[in-house]
Design a binder for these strands. Structure first.
Lengths: 198, 198
DNA sequence: GCCGACTCTGCGGATATCCACAATAGCCGC
DNA sequence: GCGGCTATTGTGGATATCCGCAGAGTCGGC
């Protein structure tokens, strides 16, 4: 189980939430400010974020925006004491996972956090697969990439040769290099890899 | 441009919204109750829904649930005068497109509705394509479907013949029937069709 | 019983793809 | 300049796929 990151400038609340989650075997890290978390965040930071909206300094919403801009995909659950519908709607439409008003129901919050952690874990697994794929893609030369795209588009070697203005033989060479580098044996497998099919 | 369906039990509001949208060239249909719309709704009803939460009889939220249960995918924008965050969060997480508090800004609401209408139109186009695909899939025999699945899984004819315990020639026959019925020329195209690739 | 489907199979040939061996040429870095 | 990478092409042969022609068995409907 990965970590729940609690960002709240109220130490009492951090402690209370920390107790709640640790009692449910959810590892917790507390951050006293948005700035502190933003500073510490790295692309490989895993888990989920429990984020107070109203804080001294940078607000939870602004932290969310900054993290999004940095490419953070961690699920974010907002905590707020002020029932502001437009803010909630805006946050959810930007991709926040949840928006919870204080006072909240402990069990419900824990459930939502656990869901979010599971989601993050799955997402990271998917992305790990994609990263391996990206690494293999990066080993292709320009020409190989061009050929690969046409292969995946369903073109026959003959047509590819025409479109690129090279001989069929050359297409075959690039094609087999692509298959080798991408570790597939057929055009169909390659297509499935690139289109992210089941 | 498809129709905006306004469901509100307050005739004055329906009229006002009707005026607003008609002045922006958005076709409008008004419904005096959730029941009335639910009754009239058909799977091919197009456009988007502007839905008051609080109404006599069935509430907007309940209408939303009922429509979802019927398989309705029309984008829904909720209108509410009561800033209730949990309701907004719940509605959005169930798939509502937006949640707007009264009083609202006219231009903003119009923009959101136009976005929603465009989204619905695109979605219907995609689904029309899927329907054609489903129709073609339905013309396949069991055997053809089996062969198709293995082809799309990247197996060679020889392997497919082994797995199904039939001769390669027979696999070839089924395979070419599949290609013909699905109107593709290569296994890659078929794979893209079925995995819904770009 | 006949007809139409679906399924199965074989033969042979046209195309397409896979692959090893061999070679030329440009570009870049050591 | 030499070695390595990339891109290019050729020959020739092994496999695989595509396709028409021909035939056969089963099953269900008219």
């Amino acid at each position: 189980m990965t970590t729940l990151h609690i960002v709240d400038d109220d130490e009492a609340i951090r402690d209370a939430l920390g107790w709640l989650f640790q009692s449910r075997n959810v590892p917790v890290a507390g951050w006293p400010s948005a700035e502190a978390f933003l500073e510490a965040w790295r692309p490989d930071t895993a888990g989920c974020l429990l984020l107070d909206i109203r804080m001294e300094g940078m607000s939870g919403l602004e932290l969310f925006d900054r993290l999004l801009a940095k490419g953070c995909r961690m699920p974010v659950i907002f905590l707020t004491g002020h029932g502001d519908v437009p803010i909630a709607v805006g946050a959810l439409k930007k991709g926040a996972r949840d928006f919870v008003e204080k006072p909240f129901n402990d069990n419900e919050l824990v459930d939502r956090v656990i869901d979010a952690l599971a989601f993050d874990a799955e997402q990271r697994e998917r992305e790990a697969g994609q990263a391996g794929l990206a690494a293999r893609l990066a080993t292709l030369t320009q020409r190989e990439r061009q050929v690969m795209e046409l292969v995946v588009a369903g073109r026959l070697n003959k047509v590819i040769a025409d479109e690129l203005g090279i001989s069929m033989r050359t297409v075959e060479v690039h094609r087999s290099h692509v298959f080798e580098k991408m570790r597939v044996k057929t055009a169909v497998e390659l297509t499935r890899l690139l289109t992210g099919a089941s």
